[in-house]
Design a protein around this nucleic acid. Structure first.
Length: 325
DNA sequence: AATAACCTCAACCGCTATGAG
DNA sequence: ACTCATAGCGGTTGAGGTTAT
Protein backbone atom coordinates (compact mmCIF):
# COMPACT_ATOMS: atom_id res chain seq x y z
CA UNK A 1 0.00 0.00 0.00
CA UNK A 2 1.36 3.38 -0.89
CA UNK A 3 1.92 5.55 2.10
CA UNK A 4 0.16 8.82 2.19
CA UNK A 5 2.49 11.77 2.27
CA UNK A 6 3.26 13.19 5.67
CA UNK A 7 1.62 16.39 4.58
CA UNK A 8 0.22 18.18 1.62
CA UNK A 9 3.31 18.92 -0.39
CA UNK A 10 1.79 20.92 -3.16
CA UNK A 11 1.67 24.15 -1.24
CA UNK A 12 4.72 23.79 0.96
CA UNK A 13 8.00 25.61 0.69
CA UNK A 14 11.19 23.67 0.32
CA UNK A 15 14.81 24.53 0.68
CA UNK A 16 16.45 26.98 3.00
CA UNK A 17 14.36 28.58 5.71
CA UNK A 18 13.83 32.30 5.69
CA UNK A 19 14.28 34.44 8.74
CA UNK A 20 10.55 35.03 8.86
CA UNK A 21 9.83 31.32 8.83
CA UNK A 22 12.30 30.75 11.63
CA UNK A 23 10.73 33.49 13.68
CA UNK A 24 7.26 32.09 13.17
CA UNK A 25 8.36 28.62 14.20
CA UNK A 26 10.22 29.83 17.28
CA UNK A 27 7.35 32.02 18.33
CA UNK A 28 4.85 29.22 17.93
CA UNK A 29 6.87 26.64 19.83
CA UNK A 30 7.69 29.07 22.61
CA UNK A 31 4.00 29.71 23.03
CA UNK A 32 2.59 26.24 22.50
CA UNK A 33 5.52 23.94 23.00
CA UNK A 34 6.54 21.07 20.80
CA UNK A 35 3.48 19.14 19.91
CA UNK A 36 1.89 17.66 16.85
CA UNK A 37 4.27 18.43 14.05
CA UNK A 38 1.69 17.60 11.44
CA UNK A 39 -0.69 20.31 12.56
CA UNK A 40 1.99 22.77 13.59
CA UNK A 41 2.69 24.37 10.22
CA UNK A 42 -0.90 25.35 9.67
CA UNK A 43 -1.30 26.56 13.21
CA UNK A 44 1.92 28.55 13.00
CA UNK A 45 1.11 29.93 9.57
CA UNK A 46 3.98 28.18 7.89
CA UNK A 47 3.92 26.82 4.36
CA UNK A 48 6.12 23.91 5.37
CA UNK A 49 5.51 20.28 6.08
CA UNK A 50 5.56 19.18 9.68
CA UNK A 51 8.58 17.08 9.14
CA UNK A 52 10.51 20.04 7.86
CA UNK A 53 9.45 22.12 10.88
CA UNK A 54 10.52 19.41 13.26
CA UNK A 55 13.91 19.12 11.62
CA UNK A 56 14.44 22.85 11.54
CA UNK A 57 13.63 23.14 15.21
CA UNK A 58 15.62 20.16 16.39
CA UNK A 59 18.69 20.76 14.28
CA UNK A 60 18.89 24.49 14.19
CA UNK A 61 16.49 26.56 16.24
CA UNK A 62 16.36 24.77 19.56
CA UNK A 63 17.73 27.15 22.17
CA UNK A 64 19.89 24.56 23.91
CA UNK A 65 22.03 23.88 20.89
CA UNK A 66 25.71 24.38 21.44
CA UNK A 67 26.91 25.09 17.91
CA UNK A 68 30.47 26.03 17.18
CA UNK A 69 33.44 23.76 16.68
CA UNK A 70 33.67 20.38 18.29
CA UNK A 71 36.22 20.12 21.04
CA UNK A 72 38.90 17.47 21.17
CA UNK A 73 37.01 15.86 24.02
CA UNK A 74 33.86 15.72 21.93
CA UNK A 75 35.83 14.20 19.07
CA UNK A 76 37.12 11.43 21.24
CA UNK A 77 33.75 10.83 22.81
CA UNK A 78 32.13 10.53 19.39
CA UNK A 79 34.79 8.09 18.28
CA UNK A 80 34.35 6.03 21.42
CA UNK A 81 30.58 6.02 21.20
CA UNK A 82 30.65 5.19 17.51
CA UNK A 83 32.86 2.26 18.32
CA UNK A 84 30.22 1.10 20.77
CA UNK A 85 26.99 1.73 18.89
CA UNK A 86 27.97 2.36 15.26
CA UNK A 87 25.97 4.81 13.16
CA UNK A 88 23.35 5.34 15.83
CA UNK A 89 23.66 9.08 15.63
CA UNK A 90 20.73 9.81 17.86
CA UNK A 91 22.19 7.63 20.59
CA UNK A 92 25.53 9.33 20.24
CA UNK A 93 23.88 12.75 20.28
CA UNK A 94 22.21 11.92 23.58
CA UNK A 95 25.66 11.79 25.16
CA UNK A 96 26.78 15.11 23.73
CA UNK A 97 24.84 17.92 25.27
CA UNK A 98 23.83 20.57 22.77
CA UNK A 99 24.73 18.54 19.72
CA UNK A 100 22.26 17.07 17.26
CA UNK A 101 22.39 13.73 15.56
CA UNK A 102 22.55 15.46 12.20
CA UNK A 103 25.43 17.62 13.30
CA UNK A 104 27.36 14.66 14.63
CA UNK A 105 26.66 12.64 11.53
CA UNK A 106 27.96 15.43 9.32
CA UNK A 107 30.97 15.94 11.53
CA UNK A 108 31.73 12.27 11.44
CA UNK A 109 31.59 12.11 7.68
CA UNK A 110 33.59 15.24 7.05
CA UNK A 111 36.18 15.23 9.81
CA UNK A 112 36.39 12.23 12.04
CA UNK A 113 36.58 9.64 9.31
CA UNK A 114 39.53 11.48 7.90
CA UNK A 115 41.09 11.74 11.29
CA UNK A 116 40.77 8.02 11.88
CA UNK A 117 42.23 7.19 8.50
CA UNK A 118 45.13 9.42 9.42
CA UNK A 119 45.62 7.31 12.49
CA UNK A 120 45.48 4.17 10.40
CA UNK A 121 42.14 3.20 11.84
CA UNK A 122 39.23 1.96 9.83
CA UNK A 123 36.31 4.22 10.82
CA UNK A 124 33.81 1.49 10.12
CA UNK A 125 35.36 -1.12 12.33
CA UNK A 126 37.65 0.98 14.54
CA UNK A 127 40.32 -1.57 13.87
CA UNK A 128 43.70 -0.91 12.29
CA UNK A 129 43.53 -0.76 8.55
CA UNK A 130 44.87 -3.86 6.94
CA UNK A 131 47.76 -3.53 4.56
CA UNK A 132 46.75 -3.78 0.95
CA UNK A 133 46.69 -7.44 0.28
CA UNK A 134 48.67 -9.25 -2.31
CA UNK A 135 45.41 -10.65 -3.53
CA UNK A 136 44.65 -7.29 -5.05
CA UNK A 137 47.43 -7.54 -7.54
CA UNK A 138 46.62 -11.17 -8.07
CA UNK A 139 43.09 -10.18 -8.82
CA UNK A 140 44.45 -7.67 -11.26
CA UNK A 141 45.32 -10.43 -13.59
CA UNK A 142 48.86 -11.19 -12.58
CA UNK A 143 50.50 -7.93 -13.42
CA UNK A 144 54.21 -8.19 -13.76
CA UNK A 145 55.03 -4.59 -13.06
CA UNK A 146 58.69 -4.16 -12.35
CA UNK A 147 58.13 -1.35 -9.95
CA UNK A 148 57.40 -1.83 -6.32
CA UNK A 149 53.74 -2.05 -5.60
CA UNK A 150 53.04 0.50 -2.96
CA UNK A 151 50.57 0.28 -0.21
CA UNK A 152 50.68 3.99 0.29
CA UNK A 153 52.25 7.21 -0.72
CA UNK A 154 52.75 9.29 2.34
CA UNK A 155 53.92 12.81 2.07
CA UNK A 156 56.41 14.18 4.53
CA UNK A 157 54.57 16.26 7.01
CA UNK A 158 56.70 19.28 6.23
CA UNK A 159 55.26 19.24 2.74
CA UNK A 160 51.66 18.83 3.59
CA UNK A 161 51.03 22.55 3.74
CA UNK A 162 53.39 23.56 1.02
CA UNK A 163 52.49 23.53 -2.62
CA UNK A 164 54.50 20.93 -4.42
CA UNK A 165 53.79 19.59 -7.82
CA UNK A 166 54.17 16.10 -9.05
CA UNK A 167 54.69 16.33 -12.78
CA UNK A 168 52.45 14.14 -14.81
CA UNK A 169 54.09 12.63 -17.82
CA UNK A 170 52.19 11.03 -20.67
CA UNK A 171 54.05 8.09 -22.01
CA UNK A 172 54.19 6.15 -25.22
CA UNK A 173 50.77 4.82 -24.56
CA UNK A 174 49.51 7.89 -26.31
CA UNK A 175 46.93 8.52 -23.71
CA UNK A 176 45.59 11.99 -23.74
CA UNK A 177 46.69 13.42 -20.48
CA UNK A 178 44.84 16.52 -19.51
CA UNK A 179 46.21 16.75 -16.09
CA UNK A 180 45.80 18.89 -13.13
CA UNK A 181 48.97 18.99 -11.18
CA UNK A 182 49.16 16.95 -8.07
CA UNK A 183 49.43 19.54 -5.44
CA UNK A 184 50.35 18.28 -2.05
CA UNK A 185 48.72 21.24 -0.46
CA UNK A 186 45.41 19.86 -1.53
CA UNK A 187 44.03 17.22 0.63
CA UNK A 188 42.96 15.23 -2.37
CA UNK A 189 45.05 16.14 -5.33
CA UNK A 190 43.70 14.68 -8.49
CA UNK A 191 44.87 13.74 -11.88
CA UNK A 192 42.44 13.41 -14.66
CA UNK A 193 43.05 11.90 -18.00
CA UNK A 194 41.02 10.87 -20.97
CA UNK A 195 42.67 7.66 -21.85
CA UNK A 196 40.32 5.33 -20.14
CA UNK A 197 41.28 3.05 -17.37
CA UNK A 198 43.72 0.74 -19.03
CA UNK A 199 46.53 2.65 -17.54
CA UNK A 200 49.17 2.16 -14.97
CA UNK A 201 49.94 4.77 -12.40
CA UNK A 202 53.59 4.83 -11.48
CA UNK A 203 55.37 7.11 -9.07
CA UNK A 204 59.10 7.22 -9.59
CA UNK A 205 62.01 9.53 -9.01
CA UNK A 206 61.44 12.53 -11.15
CA UNK A 207 64.66 14.38 -11.16
CA UNK A 208 62.58 17.42 -10.43
CA UNK A 209 62.67 19.40 -7.29
CA UNK A 210 59.74 19.61 -5.00
CA UNK A 211 58.43 16.25 -4.15
CA UNK A 212 61.12 14.65 -6.22
CA UNK A 213 58.63 12.25 -7.65
CA UNK A 214 56.83 11.96 -10.85
CA UNK A 215 53.65 10.24 -11.62
CA UNK A 216 53.38 8.45 -14.89
CA UNK A 217 50.30 7.23 -16.62
CA UNK A 218 51.01 4.38 -18.90
CA UNK A 219 49.44 1.31 -20.34
CA UNK A 220 48.97 -1.30 -17.76
CA UNK A 221 49.00 -4.15 -20.16
CA UNK A 222 46.16 -5.88 -18.49
CA UNK A 223 43.27 -3.56 -18.61
CA UNK A 224 43.43 -2.31 -15.10
CA UNK A 225 45.33 0.31 -13.21
CA UNK A 226 47.93 -0.23 -10.63
CA UNK A 227 49.90 2.21 -8.60
CA UNK A 228 53.50 1.82 -7.91
CA UNK A 229 56.14 3.79 -6.18
CA UNK A 230 59.85 3.54 -6.20
CA UNK A 231 62.01 4.71 -3.39
CA UNK A 232 63.52 8.11 -3.66
CA UNK A 233 67.24 8.25 -3.69
CA UNK A 234 67.58 11.95 -3.28
CA UNK A 235 65.74 15.01 -2.23
CA UNK A 236 62.63 14.70 -0.22
CA UNK A 237 61.94 11.23 0.97
CA UNK A 238 58.61 9.80 0.13
CA UNK A 239 57.93 7.30 2.77
CA UNK A 240 56.07 4.11 2.49
CA UNK A 241 54.45 4.17 5.88
CA UNK A 242 53.62 1.22 7.98
CA UNK A 243 50.11 2.50 8.00
CA UNK A 244 48.24 1.09 5.10
CA UNK A 245 46.45 4.24 4.21
CA UNK A 246 45.80 4.97 1.48
CA UNK A 247 45.24 1.44 0.35
CA UNK A 248 46.39 0.20 -2.96
CA UNK A 249 44.81 1.48 -6.11
CA UNK A 250 43.10 -1.34 -7.78
CA UNK A 251 40.85 -0.59 -10.64
CA UNK A 252 40.04 -4.19 -10.97
CA UNK A 253 37.73 -3.01 -8.24
CA UNK A 254 38.74 -5.46 -5.64
CA UNK A 255 38.56 -2.90 -2.93
CA UNK A 256 40.10 -2.67 0.41
CA UNK A 257 37.70 -2.17 3.30
CA UNK A 258 35.64 -0.31 4.21
CA UNK A 259 34.24 -0.19 0.73
CA UNK A 260 32.20 -3.01 -0.55
CA UNK A 261 33.35 -5.49 -3.04
CA UNK A 262 31.82 -4.49 -6.32
CA UNK A 263 29.68 -6.96 -8.02
CA UNK A 264 30.01 -8.23 -11.53
CA UNK A 265 32.51 -5.64 -12.63
CA UNK A 266 35.83 -7.11 -13.52
CA UNK A 267 37.07 -3.88 -14.95
CA UNK A 268 35.26 -0.60 -14.71
CA UNK A 269 34.54 0.53 -18.22
CA UNK A 270 34.12 4.16 -18.94
CA UNK A 271 30.67 5.29 -18.25
CA UNK A 272 29.94 2.83 -15.53
CA UNK A 273 28.81 4.75 -12.57
CA UNK A 274 30.77 4.19 -9.44
CA UNK A 275 29.20 6.92 -7.46
CA UNK A 276 26.75 4.88 -5.49
CA UNK A 277 27.27 3.53 -2.07
CA UNK A 278 27.43 0.01 -3.34
CA UNK A 279 29.96 0.94 -5.98
CA UNK A 280 28.42 -0.19 -9.17
CA UNK A 281 25.48 0.60 -11.25
CA UNK A 282 22.63 2.49 -9.83
CA UNK A 283 19.86 0.34 -8.61
CA UNK A 284 17.82 1.04 -11.68
CA UNK A 285 20.75 0.48 -13.97
CA UNK A 286 20.97 4.09 -15.02
CA UNK A 287 23.74 6.44 -14.26
CA UNK A 288 23.54 10.03 -13.22
CA UNK A 289 27.09 10.80 -14.15
CA UNK A 290 27.41 12.93 -17.19
CA UNK A 291 30.71 12.09 -18.71
CA UNK A 292 33.10 9.27 -19.31
CA UNK A 293 36.12 11.01 -17.96
CA UNK A 294 38.19 9.05 -15.57
CA UNK A 295 39.82 10.75 -12.68
CA UNK A 296 42.45 9.24 -10.54
CA UNK A 297 44.03 10.93 -7.64
CA UNK A 298 46.57 10.07 -5.07
CA UNK A 299 45.68 11.07 -1.62
CA UNK A 300 48.50 13.02 -0.15
CA UNK A 301 47.55 13.51 3.40
CA UNK A 302 44.18 12.27 4.27
CA UNK A 303 41.40 10.16 2.91
CA UNK A 304 38.26 11.61 1.50
CA UNK A 305 34.95 11.31 3.07
CA UNK A 306 33.01 8.35 1.88
CA UNK A 307 31.26 10.44 -0.65
CA UNK A 308 32.32 13.73 -2.06
CA UNK A 309 31.36 15.74 -5.01
CA UNK A 310 28.44 17.75 -6.04
CA UNK A 311 26.14 17.89 -8.98
CA UNK A 312 27.64 15.88 -11.76
CA UNK A 313 30.92 15.91 -10.00
CA UNK A 314 31.01 12.40 -8.67
CA UNK A 315 34.05 10.63 -7.54
CA UNK A 316 34.79 8.04 -5.03
CA UNK A 317 37.78 6.87 -3.20
CA UNK A 318 39.33 3.79 -4.67
CA UNK A 319 42.35 2.38 -2.99
CA UNK A 320 44.99 5.05 -3.21
CA UNK A 321 42.96 7.29 -5.41
CA UNK A 322 39.71 8.36 -6.83
CA UNK A 323 37.92 7.36 -9.90
CA UNK A 324 35.69 9.90 -11.49
CA UNK A 325 33.30 9.21 -14.29
C1' DA B 1 39.84 38.34 -11.90
C1' DA B 2 37.78 34.31 -13.53
C1' DT B 3 37.03 29.71 -13.27
C1' DA B 4 37.21 25.12 -11.52
C1' DA B 5 37.67 22.16 -7.84
C1' DC B 6 36.64 21.13 -3.40
C1' DC B 7 34.26 21.19 1.21
C1' DT B 8 30.59 21.81 4.51
C1' DC B 9 26.28 21.19 6.43
C1' DA B 10 21.23 22.28 6.24
C1' DA B 11 17.63 20.07 4.36
C1' DC B 12 15.41 16.41 2.17
C1' DC B 13 14.00 11.53 1.33
C1' DG B 14 12.64 7.08 2.39
C1' DC B 15 12.26 3.87 5.67
C1' DT B 16 11.14 1.87 10.36
C1' DA B 17 9.16 2.16 14.99
C1' DT B 18 5.50 3.31 17.76
C1' DG B 19 1.03 4.00 19.37
C1' DA B 20 -3.88 5.10 18.86
C1' DG B 21 -8.18 3.62 17.17
C1' DA C 1 -4.78 -8.46 14.92
C1' DC C 2 -4.86 -4.97 11.85
C1' DT C 3 -4.58 -0.29 9.70
C1' DC C 4 -3.00 4.12 9.60
C1' DA C 5 -0.92 8.49 11.19
C1' DT C 6 2.91 10.35 13.17
C1' DA C 7 7.56 10.63 15.08
C1' DG C 8 12.08 9.62 14.55
C1' DC C 9 16.24 7.92 12.34
C1' DG C 10 20.02 7.39 9.06
C1' DG C 11 21.54 8.04 4.35
C1' DT C 12 21.96 11.27 0.72
C1' DT C 13 21.82 15.55 -1.83
C1' DG C 14 23.08 19.92 -3.49
C1' DA C 15 23.47 25.07 -2.58
C1' DG C 16 26.65 28.00 -1.30
C1' DG C 17 31.04 29.16 0.49
C1' DT C 18 36.11 28.54 0.23
C1' DT C 19 40.38 27.44 -1.88
C1' DA C 20 43.38 26.50 -5.71
C1' DT C 21 44.81 27.31 -10.30
Amino acid sequence: MARSPCCEKQHTNKGAWSKEEDERLIKYIKTHGEGCWRSLPKAAGLARCGKSCRLRWINYLRPDLKRGNFTREEDELIIRLHNEVGNKWSQIAQQLKGRTDNEIKNYWNTHIKRKLYGRGVDPSTHKPLKPASASASAAAGGSTSSTTTASAIALPTNLINKPAVIPVVPTTSGSSVSHKSLNTKSVFPVLSFNGGLNKKLVVTDSGYGGLDKKLVVTDSGYGGVEDSVSNSSSGVTVEEPSLPYPPQINLELSLAPPFQQPQALAVAPQGVCLCTQAIGLHGNGSCCCMNSRAMIGVSAAAPPSATTGTGNDFFRFFGAGFIKF
